[in-house]
Design a binder for these strands. Structure first.
Lengths: 109, 109
DNA sequence: CCTATACATCGTATAATTGCAATATAACAA
DNA sequence: TTGTTATATTGCAATTATACGATGTATAGG
């Protein structure tokens, strides 16, 4: 139905899925990498650097904002975006805990 | 259009996005956690443990398989699934490199 | 006030995702 | 062969995602 049954899963599972989904798009990864690269806020240049329409970029930025991964500050005419430190740390913890749970098994099928 | 313009991004960005998307669903996170928990292959029990229909579980398993995150081995009547070690390591490297690129800025907007 | 710039939002077309019932398949048992 | 068990696949309906043109909004400069 295109409708995820979130009520069957734990809050942690849903939250991790939501964070992963917010990043699970090459454009949004590119946006985040661009923000990470400048290590500070980045204003508007994104539209010029990625090959997508302005409306599309704005939409991706909105999704990253909704997920809490980035935050935007109005800077005169333009808007500056930067990483939300709290969410980023949470993300590292959750993903680290998830991926780190894997121990190479001694024997498997 | 519901069609991602993959040609505008690097192979790494597309690959990371694809891996993240494969995990970006609470049911698939639950499946992976269940596999990680037993630290070995897990046969069929998933349908009983998650509250989703058999067809739905099978579909999620297929997506995880397509992404290369898990692999399935036929074990008589049933099928055993386990983590694909190579992909898991790749995943840790890619996500680690991505998340680790963040340095808390001294000053931001 | 008028214009330009920088984004955001709306509307729309298209495509992908989610979930399940029904059905198919494959292996084993009797 | 017939039936049972365990998965996979198919087909469908509902929902969400992607992308963009068009339009709205807000700030700054004249």
């Amino acid at each position: 139905m295109g409708l995820t049954k979130t009520e069957m899963f734990t809050a942690e599972q849903n939250q991790l899925a939501q964070l992963l989904k917010a990043m699970a798009h090459p454009a949004r990864i590119a946006i985040l990498q661009r923000i990470l690269l400048s290590n500070t806020c980045i204003c508007g240049d994104l539209v010029d650097e990625l090959g997508l329409a302005q409306a599309t970029i704005s939409q991706h930025l909105k999704e990253l904002k909704n997920a809490g991964i980035i935050q935007g500050n109005i800077e005169g005419v333009s808007v500056c975006y930067c990483i939300n430190p709290e969410t980023w740390v949470l993300l590292e913890e959750r993903i680290g805990g998830f991926l780190g749970a894997y121990k190479a098994p001694s024997s498997c099928c």
